[in-house]
Design a protein around this nucleic acid. Structure first.
Lengths: 148, 148
DNA sequence: TCTGTGGGTTTGGAAATCCAACGTAGGCTG
DNA sequence: CAGCCTACGTTGGATTTCCAAACCCACAGA
């Protein structure tokens, strides 16, 4: 990892194939192995490996729902729930740029179809391209705007 | 792809190893092959493949900056810029849950260190865990809240 | 006893990734 | 002009990851 960066760190945990789809299923309420395997279409060994990794990383936790035979379901931890915004933005990007008609509609509790916008918690304004500056230790990378 | 879903679609385009790090570099203003290879630490052949894919997908575009020898830089298109929110949320998640001290600080133009929040464009409220409902064609998956 | 379900692990082959070395095309230094 | 450097890839071969199918175990119901 050349540039030290928490995006790179994050991707070592959730960047492997299917990891984010596991999270998608968990957020949709699907928390058991068989159902995930079906809905994701992932090979079972890979799914097992991803679940193990996500549990180790503290993103999911294994909660027993049957004693005998021992059966577990996977629930998001606080850290896991904090990944929902990432999936929201990713889904929205896919809806806008990749598919004709979204296969899934997300509705906010206000009643509207969710149009998610990233805003700055400090000033409340939308975070647009070119409105941020990154300091990498030493100064002065500006995050790309349209023609930068 | 079992469940039709634009998250899955999106991941076929930007889900491969290094793709999002390429985007990170592009947003930081690094747009040439050599510099990307250094900063990302990716094998050169893989980097070439990722750039090709991102250009084909309309996320980056190749712009010549030298005639002879022919040299190109990679710039984000509109679709590419629309991925910035995903990276913002991902970086922030990594900062919060993975690293001790962020290696990079992003400042919003309002002057504050960026604390990004996903909000609903319709009502302006933050989109919290459990505040959305997903309809998948047929009704009724509720997106996970803490104990759901 | 036989069949079915849930939750995996094992196995052998296909595909993707990694790394170092090479090629090419021009520029810079002396 | 020789010799070295930068930029941008491509190639070959070793390694890792992925995948589908089969297998395994524990139980439940008929």
């Amino acid at each position: 990892m050349a540039r030290p960066c928490s995006i790179a760190e994050a991707l070592t945990v959730i960047g492997e194939k299917y990891s984010l789809l596991v999270l998608r299923e968990v957020f949709l309420g699907v928390r058991r192995f068989e159902a995930m395997a079906r809905n994701i279409g992932a090979p079972r060994d890979i799914l097992a490996a991803r679940l193990k990794r996500l549990v180790e990383a503290g993103i999911l936790e294994k909660v027993p729902y049957s004693e005998r035979p021992p059966r577990y379901e996977y629930r998001p931890t606080k850290a896991g729930l904090d990944l929902q915004p990432v999936l929201h933005m990713l889904r929205q990007w896919g809806d806008r740029h990749l598919v004709d008609r979204p296969a899934m509609v997300v509705e906010h509790r206000c009643g509207a179809v969710l149009e998610a916008v990233v805003t700055c918690a400090h000033c409340g304004e939308p975070v647009e391209a070119g409105s941020c500056t990154a300091r990498v230790e030493a100064p002065g990378w500006s995050l790309a705007g349209p023609t930068a």
